[in-house]
Amino acid sequence: MKTNRKTIPMPMRYLINTVLIVLFILASTLFVNSDAVSGYFTKILMVIGINIILAVSLNIATGYLGQLPLGHAGFMAVGAYTGGIFLKAVDAAKATGGTYYLYVAAALVLSGIVAGIFGILIGVPALRLKGDYLAIITLGFGEIIRVVLTNIDSVLGFDLTYGASGLKRIPKITTFFNVLLCVVLSCVVIHMVMKSRHGRAILSIRENEIAAESCGIRTTYYKVMAFTMSAFFAGVAGCLYAGYLGSLQPSSFGFMKSIEILVMVVLGGMGSMLGSILSATVLTALPEALRAFSDYRMVVYSLVLVLMMIFKPTGLLGQYDFSLSRILEKLMNPKKSAGKKEGASHE
């Protein structure tokens, strides 16, 4: 097998991937909508999907760009509130047929775009800093977004976010199907960008910023681009979250939420998309599975985190991430489903 180094031509690969993705979406939607799966289980799957989008989006900034933003929940909050307010304004719950889907799609895109704009606004000043200082400044921005969401109504006299009591009665637009679609689209788009010329520029900044700059890569441009992309998908996830819960409280987008997302990325292995997806799944499902011991689950969760860092700091996948791609290579089997594409990390 190893002598057969020929690869399948690109159009064919795209075709295979597309077919596999469509089959995957159809099969899992049919599976979930059948009676075999309870409503509770579907809800957990939806939360897992939202967390996957959050993790892969943070992975752009953390894993690929090599920075450490601690304000990811802020972007999620911006997206969630944008989506929630839009859905309430157009009264999506009353719309039917094509209009309904149009509204849902518009809400998702709009949330992403608004969060992306915030990403640019925050990224331009914040990305002048590096390392710990970048972490701190994004933490500051994240907290400010939360404080503003809590207090803006009382200052400006709007009825927009309803302050600490929360935005309620948002049309519940989130279904398993649109979560799945968003997960697949986010993963595919992120994967494709990272494999492109722009993605390689972003990776080169992670490896060595000075060397990248001296090779003519516009580092500021690409850093802001990666940061904005990260914010965009966080916004989409936020919108799904708003449509899932039906009500939003600013306090749920605090510093701890950002940390939760970061933990998912780090445990999975930074710069590995498969790692982010797996750890987002495990870390969402595990507390549910441990619900019987619900008093102890947060303690166990934090213990696992500490022990993991001490004994296996490379993350959940660690070596295995690498061997997976090697197995695929060995079998000369380019059929990777989009949900299981691995990021461009070869460290």
């Binding site: 450490l68 940390i259 970061l262 780090v266 213990l303 985190l305 860092m309």
Partner: peptide, 17 residues
Amino acid sequence: RLSLLITAIGISFLLEN
């Protein structure tokens, strides 16, 4: 340093919970 930071966050979670 990132692993160290995550450990610190984990300890903080552990004490709180």
